[in-house]
Deep mutational scan, measured.
Amino acid sequence: HIECVVCGDKSSGKHYGQFTCEGCKSFFKRSVRRNLTYTCRANRNCPIDQHHRNQCQYCRLKKCLKVGMRREAVQRG
C-alpha cells in the first residue's frame, strides 16, 4: 500500500496533490478552508508521524505544505 507522505499512515489516495491518509486530508482541508493559524509550543520541528500527528497542528500543517500539498487545490466551502 501507499503511505501518507505526511504521517506515514495508510494513504487513501491522492488529495490536494499528494498521497495522504483521510486524517491528514481532512486536517489540511479544514486548516485551509477556515484559514487557521497555529502556533508551535516547541521548536517548530515536532515529529509528525502516525502516533504524533495530532500533537502539534503547526508542524503538521508545515509538513503538509513541505511535502507539496497545495492550498489552491482545496475548494472553498
Rank of each mutant, 00 (worst) to 15 (best):
C21E: 00
Q57D: 12
T37I: 10
G68H: 01
G13D: 12
S31M: 01
C46R: 02
V74C: 10
E3R: 04
E72D: 11
L61V: 03
M69F: 03
V5K: 15
H51W: 11
N35C: 15
Q50W: 09
D9T: 10
C24H: 00
Y16K: 06
H52G: 12
F27P: 00
V5E: 10
Q57E: 15
P47N: 02
A42G: 15
C59E: 02
Q75E: 14
S31I: 11
C40L: 01
T39A: 15
C24E: 00
Y16F: 15
V32N: 06
H51Q: 13
K66Q: 12
V5F: 15
G77T: 11
G68S: 03
R60V: 07
Q50V: 08
R41K: 15
V74I: 05
R44D: 13
C4L: 00
S26R: 10
L65Y: 09
R41Q: 12
G17Y: 04
S26Y: 04
P47C: 06
N45Q: 14
Q55R: 09
V67Y: 07
G23C: 11
R33D: 11
Y58G: 07
R53I: 07
K63L: 04
R70Q: 14
N43E: 15
K62Q: 11
G77P: 11
R71C: 09
I2Y: 15
R60I: 06
E3L: 10
E72S: 05
N54Q: 08
D49C: 02
H52L: 07
Q57C: 08
A73L: 10
F28W: 09
S12E: 13
C64N: 02
S26A: 06
E22L: 08
R53T: 11
Q55M: 07
T39K: 08
C4M: 03
R76M: 10
C64P: 02
Y16D: 14
F19W: 11
G8N: 10
T37F: 08
E22K: 10
S12N: 11
H1P: 06
P47F: 10
C21A: 02
L61T: 01
R70N: 13
E72V: 05
Y38L: 08
L61C: 02
E72Q: 05
H1Y: 15
H1N: 13
R41M: 13
K10S: 07
C21S: 01
N35K: 13
C56D: 01
D9F: 10
N45A: 09
V74W: 05
Q18W: 04
R34K: 15
A42Y: 14
R53E: 11
C4E: 00
C7S: 01
R33C: 02
Q50P: 13
K25R: 13
C46D: 03
V32C: 01
S11R: 04
R71M: 14
V6S: 01
K25N: 06
S11T: 10
C7F: 00
Y16S: 10
G23W: 15
C46L: 03
Q55V: 11
R76P: 06
R33T: 13
G13M: 10
R44F: 06
Y58K: 04
C40W: 02
N45H: 06
C24P: 02
V5L: 15
G68P: 00
V5Y: 15
C21I: 00
R30E: 12
R76N: 14
G13Y: 01
V6Q: 01
E72M: 05
Q57W: 14
L36C: 06
N35H: 05
R60C: 11
R70E: 14
V74A: 12
G68C: 03
N43W: 11
R34D: 15
Q55P: 08
K62D: 12
V5H: 15
R60D: 03
C56W: 02
Q50L: 09
R44E: 13
D9Y: 04
S11M: 08
S11F: 13
N43I: 04
P47R: 06
Q18V: 15
R30H: 04
Y58R: 04
H15G: 08
M69C: 04
G8H: 06
H15Q: 09
H15F: 13
V67N: 08
R71K: 14
S31P: 00
G17N: 07
V32D: 05
E72T: 05
Q55S: 09
D9I: 06
C59W: 00
K62T: 12
H52V: 12
A42V: 13
G17W: 04
T37G: 13
H15S: 06
K14R: 06
F28R: 02
G17D: 09
K62V: 13
Y58S: 11
T37Y: 05
T20I: 15
K63N: 02
D49P: 05
R30P: 03
I2C: 06
R30L: 06
N35R: 06
R71G: 09
F19H: 10
C21L: 00
Y58Q: 06
E72H: 03
C21R: 01
H1L: 12
H15L: 11
K25F: 14
G8E: 12
Q57Y: 15
P47M: 05
K62L: 11
V32T: 14
Q75H: 15
H15E: 15
P47D: 05
H51I: 06
K29E: 14
Y58P: 03
E22D: 10
T39H: 04
F28I: 04
R71L: 10
N45Y: 03
R71E: 14
H52S: 08
R30W: 07
D9R: 11
C24L: 01
P47K: 10
K14W: 04
R60T: 11
V74D: 09
R70T: 12
N35E: 14
Q55H: 11
C64D: 00
T39P: 04
V5S: 14
R71P: 12
G77Y: 05
Y58C: 08
F27R: 03
F28T: 00
T37M: 06
C40Q: 01
V67P: 00
V32P: 04
S11W: 06
T39N: 14
K66H: 08
I48N: 07
G13Q: 13
G68A: 02
A42R: 08
I48C: 05
H1W: 07
F27Y: 02
H1V: 10
H15D: 06
R44Q: 10
Q57M: 08
S12G: 12
S31V: 07
S11G: 09
Q75P: 12
N35A: 09
C4V: 02
D49K: 04
Q55D: 14
V67Q: 12
T39W: 12
R70P: 07
G8P: 03
K29P: 03
N35I: 03
H52I: 13
R53Q: 14
R60G: 04
S26T: 14
Q50R: 08
K66R: 10
H1S: 05
